[in-house]
Design a protein around this nucleic acid. Structure first.
Length: 186
DNA sequence: TAACCGATTAGCT
DNA sequence: GCTAATCGGTTAA
């Protein structure tokens, strides 16, 4: 229990930036977070924008918990809830540098190429074995393990991917120079 | 009908 | 090496 534990109560972009470089494991499988995106309540691109529904309920639950949703009817995507309970903000985990449980991740993804194992939110969820069963769970207890980033990570930012609103907000964050990003920053 | 996307294909530098 | 286009499913406005 490091005293430098992550503060999920800060603003969504702040929490999102600080998650870059953090280590995320599920049942000991995962690695270092290298790409994230912020979503907030007053944010037309956020699932929480129009208030609570059955699907996004976890976004309005306690911080440091998960919000898992189905994307385009096919993939699962993992978010971490931030700000105070009931606010409706979260961080989308977009890419991870694979470090632990490589064999299991390769098997789940049906892929050898390490660079593409977790390069994208749907890919992250598949490699880590995330599904709706992992929705609204605390990240501080098993099967989850979340370790804060080291002090000196270099973070870059840019517009979010796959949205058509609030394009002006640079709420996508990445680890500078990482080759495990879903797409490069420019 | 548009979405917090991935695999594939076709084209480019 | 890269980008753009296409299509596949569910959800919810």
């Amino acid at each position: 229990m490091p005293k430098t534990s992550l503060d999920f109560l800060a603003s969504a972009p702040e929490v999102t930036r600080r998650l870059i470089g953090a280590t995320l494991l599920v049942h000991g499988v995962g690695g270092r977070i290298v790409e994230t995106e912020a979503y907030d309540r007053e944010d037309p691109a956020s699932h929480s924008f129009s208030g609570p529904t059955l699907r996004n309920a976890a976004m309005f639950g306690p911080p440091a918990h998960t919000y898992v949703y189905r994307s385009y009817g096919i993939h699962w995507c993992l978010n971490l809830v931030c700000r105070e309970e009931g606010h409706g903000a979260g961080v989308l985990i977009r890419a991870i540098e694979p470090l632990e449980g490589m064999d299991l991740m390769r098997e789940r993804r049906g892929l050898e190429e390490i660079r593409l194992l977790c390069a994208g939110p749907g890919r992250v969820a598949q490699a880590l074995g995330i599904s709706s069963a992992h929705n609204a769970m605390a990240t501080s207890v098993p099967p989850f393990k979340l370790l804060p980033a080291p002090a000196k990570v270099k973070v870059i930012s840019g517009p979010r991917i796959g949205i058509s609103k609030a394009m002006d907000q640079p709420w996508r964050f990445g680890l500078e120079g990482s080759r495990f990003l879903s797409r490069p920053f420019r």
